[in-house]
Design a binder for these strands. Structure first.
Ligand SMILES: [Mn+2]
Ligand SMILES: [Mn+2]
Ligand SMILES: [Mn+2]
Ligand SMILES: [Mn+2]
Lengths: 243, 243
DNA sequence: TAATGTTATTAGCTTTGTCTAACATGAGCG
DNA sequence: CGCTCATGTTAGACAAAGCTAATAACATTA
């Protein structure tokens, strides 16, 4: 009955118990184990810990029951789980299973403030006319599905709108050695896009083209004091605003 | 040199080492400890584990250096950290420290797909004209700051646009006992809003008004088979579309 | 009632990650 | 040269989670 510091794992157990009680009126160790993909031997000690924290009523060998406190917590976790899953699925259009997994990891660590603001964004996107218009524009943008020149143009316009004075947007591959640019977007898909993002090529980072191999193919850039090499193909996916 | 399964904690150590090497050219145990808020005694074993995984070059008592593999990983984590922080700050307008903390937790667990799509949303919001328009409408909506009747109206219009056939939007407090409604938005701020969200009152959930206390103040609702009681003040913050 | 099978608990082991406190190392100074 | 202090390492304890394998308890069936 103390400070109620539930760990992520315990929160997941609690969520599971809550859902089992809801759906089939009783929570058995075996079902909890199956739902969480752990062995029964791991469940018993977890239940003892939850009972010690005043979250469940746990008489050994009997069915497990939530206390009002536990129910409150469980409902909170589940609400987070649900809204996060929906955000990943409906807004970001992530694969259902991935959405589920990401949400179930995030639900334990996201601050109340972050949760609150994210929910606001979610509501706004579905309820507000501006949000709904934006959302359909976002989802119909070919970059989410396959890439297309048409949308590039669309984005290029946007980019020029950003800085107002309409600097020229080009790809990193088109910079001259020594020239710098501010990244506006990273195109491409799947592994190639991820590799670029993983290297730290993000919107608003500054890239300097250091040198180009004689053949023209590997290109060396400087990014936050770090030298990286890119293939020309990759470099052409990075749009920059010449600085 | 095996499967490269870095835990969250090790990823944070790696990120810290990377940043220290960048900023002051060398990483000392003491500085790592300070940066991560742990004791020096925890750092040494962590460094050994990172060395075993081929991430750092670690000769005891000497300065710590990243291997190319470690550098690649560190850059990836840091890129995630940065873009997530910016999402929380610039899009969701979360307090800087909270944004930092939320990002630093999320960076370890978010899937590549989730990361990719979130980055896309981020880019889209800053680069596309539609996104930029939406963003300024989102941020200027008084609900993010103090609540206002004006914006309620704004939202009401949107709600009616949602279901097309223009059902009437009212608050839960205005339902009659036995009547059901689908939640369209949860207003209010801070703790009160959070309490409602924590109870599971989210957009698109169905609420039935069960009964109202004689005095009119506590109100009992049914939400996903669960009975909850709300104060009238809270209930009036929940907009529903009568079903 | 006795045998059998299912389910739950326990004991013992592992890994991760933290702490404290004791100890080791080396640099600089007297 | 030897002392002192800052820094780094180690040992030992602990808590959280998980696993396996042995055992206990219950329920069902013969
Ligand atoms: Mn979870
Ligand atoms: Mn969950
Ligand atoms: Mn982190
Ligand atoms: Mn981080």
């Amino acid at each position: 009955m103390q400070e109620t510091v539930l760990t992520g794992a315990l929160e997941d157990y609690l969520e599971t118990v809550y859902q089992l009680v809801q759906s089939r009126k009783l929570a058995r160790v075996k079902d909890i184990a199956r739902a969480r993909s752990v062995r029964a031997g791991s469940v018993s000690p977890a239940m003892r810990r939850l009972a010690d924290l005043g979250m469940i009523r746990y008489v050994q060998r009997e069915y497990i029951d939530l206390t009002p406190l536990g129910e409150e917590h469980a409902r909170r976790i589940l609400a987070r789980h649900r809204i996060l899953t929906r955000f990943f699925r409906e807004i970001l259009q992530v694969t259902p299973e991935t959405a589920e997994a990401d949400a179930c990891a995030m639900e334990h660590s996201l601050s109340a403030e972050g949760m609150d603001h994210l929910t606001r964004l979610f509501e706004f996107l579905r309820v507000c006319p501006d949000g709904r218009k934006f959302l359909s524009s976002f989802h119909s943008c070919p970059r989410i599905q396959p890439a297309s020149a048409e949308c590039m143009l669309h984005h290029r316009d946007g980019t020029e709108a950003i800085d107002g004075k309409g600097g020229t947007t080009r790809s990193v591959a088109d910079l001259k050695p020594g020239q710098k640019g501010r990244v506006t977007q990273v195109s491409g898909e799947g592994p190639i896009r991820r590799r670029l993002l993983d290297m730290g090529i993000l919107p608003d980072t500054t890239i300097e083209l250091e040198r180009v191999a004689p053949t023209g193919d590997p290109i060396w850039i400087k990014l936050e004091g770090m030298q990286l090499s890119l293939r020309r193909k990759e470099a052409s996916l990075v749009s920059v605003l010449a600085a």
